[in-house]
Design a protein around this nucleic acid. Structure first.
Length: 497
RNA sequence: GGGGGGAUGACAGAGAGGCUAUGUGGCGGACUGCAGAUCCGCACACUCGGGUUCAAAUCCCGAUCCCCCCUCCA
């Protein structure tokens, strides 16, 4: 039963995703037709967001955008972990309260991610807002006999009692103990048991519970909040690769133990980001925050760079890589700007049938066919496990067709341009591109008038072969970020990106 | 020790039995007063050794090398 490439990419087969639970590419069938509920593990707010976070959240942003593109009604929830050991330590070091510290970094980090052009999830949920849900969930697990309370007032999950524990990370309790890196703890029945609730030490932030003052363990918040906001089971659960074990493994154990149903239907894990070939870490001094990055590079170039690698693969961040990405994106941007001009003034809604109806000349037919071809290749690529590199390649191929069409002298009805433009822009937006307002003169009539006057003076200089003046005008404008280009039909200008 | 992912042209990076992406960079040409953009063309690939097949970068076996996880981490 050999399948050809074309069959494998048949759009009618729908979205296929690689599920970490089985490590296989499987058809995506949401639990409820037409609706997708997704949960992605978000930030622990003790420091600024870094470029590894951005990689992960761009990936899930694209996945969410594509599912919407396909017509699904997507509800995307992301947590904010604002109670955690690292925050306690960082706050202590900074000499501020735990709450003050986590608030500051919630604001900073979310702001930075938004500035890099990642769309906010439909809801963020904070651990401190869901203490009741967390306590209730722990009580359910205890009632079901899968957790126990220690003498000190902590609650531990009893790993040995959980059937199937280890199914996500593909390991058994026995193997984990053989690893021997787990410190035996007199409070635990089994060294692999993990805390659902930690009894508070003096001076630690704490909340009341049936087991005394304490705070939630690391994993329980995601089980509690996802159930509260999305129900259980829900469709997609995602996060960075490193979260497979122990975080997600433990979430599965807790949620299944509490509710007796499956937790999430599909698990998606993004590949890690390295910096110039090395693991990014504070000790190596190659730790790059989103803030720093945005001082040096345009957000859209960074997003393009991310999307150039498949979401499951490791990505090697490099200055050269971003520079190359910026150059490649520039090609698409130029094409987009030219295309924008062709549809300006076209007020009718974009309509495939209107486009078909007006595809009379060869030029029009070519444009229509190029658009159709692009749409099918783009969809096939994205259906295939959200293959963004292939989708970007398709965008470039289409851009090539579009540039040919743009330089064609044959008359092309605006409905065709609108159809092509819409396909190009919407696909680009799925890939997080083309978010910024077009960098042309449309919105700035005064500037355009000034530029036209300057270009006229320059044109006169050129006519008398006064190249010094002509070049001086061009060079001075380049210094202020305006590119002048001589075309056959006359000079044009644009803001350099 | 256990689990997992890789090795594709100068570089980045898809593809997964016959179609040999795409981009950046390089070279040559067209267009230009020059530049840019654009177009046309060229060069440079599938880690190694076996096997299966009419056909292998793609499947199988073996080797070498790299990376990640098993501890906080997106």
């Amino acid at each position: 039963m050999a399948e050809s490439r074309t069959e494998k990419l048949d759009p009618s087969r729908g979205v296929r995703i690689t599920d970490s639970l089985t490590n296989e590419k499987v058809p995506f069938v949401p639990l409820e037709p037409g609706r997708v509920r997704m949960y992605v593990c978000g930030l622990t707010v003790y420091d600024d967001a870094h470029i590894g976070h951005a990689r992960t959240y761009v990936s899930f942003d694209v996945i969410r955008r594509y599912l919407e593109y396909k017509g699904f009604d997507v509800r995307y929830v992301q947590n904010i972990t604002d109670v955690e050991d690292k925050i306690i330590k960082a706050a202590e070091k900074a000499g501020v309260s735990h709450l003050e510290h986590s608030r500051k970094y919630t604001q900073r980090a979310l702001g930075d991610l938004a500035r890099i052009g990642i769309r906010d999830p439909d809801a963020f949920c904070k651990v401190t807002d869901h203490m009741d849900d967390i306590v209730a969930l722990i009580e359910e697990i205890i009632e079901n006999g899968l957790a126990y309370v220690s003498d000190s007032g902590s609650v531990y999950f009893d790993v040995a009692k959980k059937e199937g524990y280890g199914k996500l990370s593909n390991r058994s309790v026995k193997e984990m103990l053989a690893g021997a890196r787990v410190e035996p703890d007199p409070e635990k029945r089994n060294p692999a048991d993990f805390a659902l609730w930690k009894a508070a030490k003096p001076d630690e932030p704490h909340w009341e519970s049936p087991w005394g003052k304490g705070r939630p363990g690391w994993h329980i918040e995601c089980s509690a909040m996802s159930e509260r906001l999305l129900g259980q089971p829900f469709d997609l659960h995602g996060g960075g690769r490193d979260l497979i074990f122990p975080h997600h493994e433990n979430e599965i154990a807790q949620s299944e133990a509490a509710k007796g149903t499956d937790f999430a239907k599909y698990w998606l894990h993004t590949g890690f980001l390295n910096v110039e070939g090395e693991k990014m870490s504070k000790s190596l001094g190659n730790f790059i925050t989103v803030r720093e990055l945005l001082e040096r590079h345009a957000a859209d170039a960074v997003r393009y760079f991310y999307v150039l690698t498949h979401w499951r693969s490791p990505i090697d961040f490099s200055e050269k890589g971003i520079t190359e990405a910026a150059a490649a994106l520039e090609r698409l941007t130029r094409t987009r700007e030219e295309l924008d001009k062709r549809v300006s003034g076209h007020e009718q809604p974009v309509d495939r049938y209107l486009a078909v109806a007006n595809a009379a000349s060869d030029a029009e037919k070519r444009l229509f066919e190029a658009t159709e071809r692009f749409l099918s290749v783009f969809t096939a690529a994205m259906d295939d496990d959200f293959n963004t590199p292939e989708a970007v390649a398709a965008l470039h191929a289409f851009a090539g067709d579009l540039r040919k069409a743009l330089s064609d002298n044959g008359h092309v009805h605006k409905a065709l341009w609108a159809y092509a433009h819409d396909a190009f822009i919407r696909a680009g937006r799925v890939l997080t591109l083309f978010q910024d307002a077009p960098a042309e003169a449309a919105g700035d009539k005064t500037l355009d008038a000034v530029m036209q006057a300057l270009l006229k003076i320059r044109q006169e200089a050129r006519e008398r072969k006064d190249w010094a003046t002509s070049d001086a005008i061009r060079d001075r404008l380049a210094e202020v970020g305006i590119e002048v280009q001589d075309e056959k039909t006359g000079a044009t200008w644009r803001r350099a990106s």
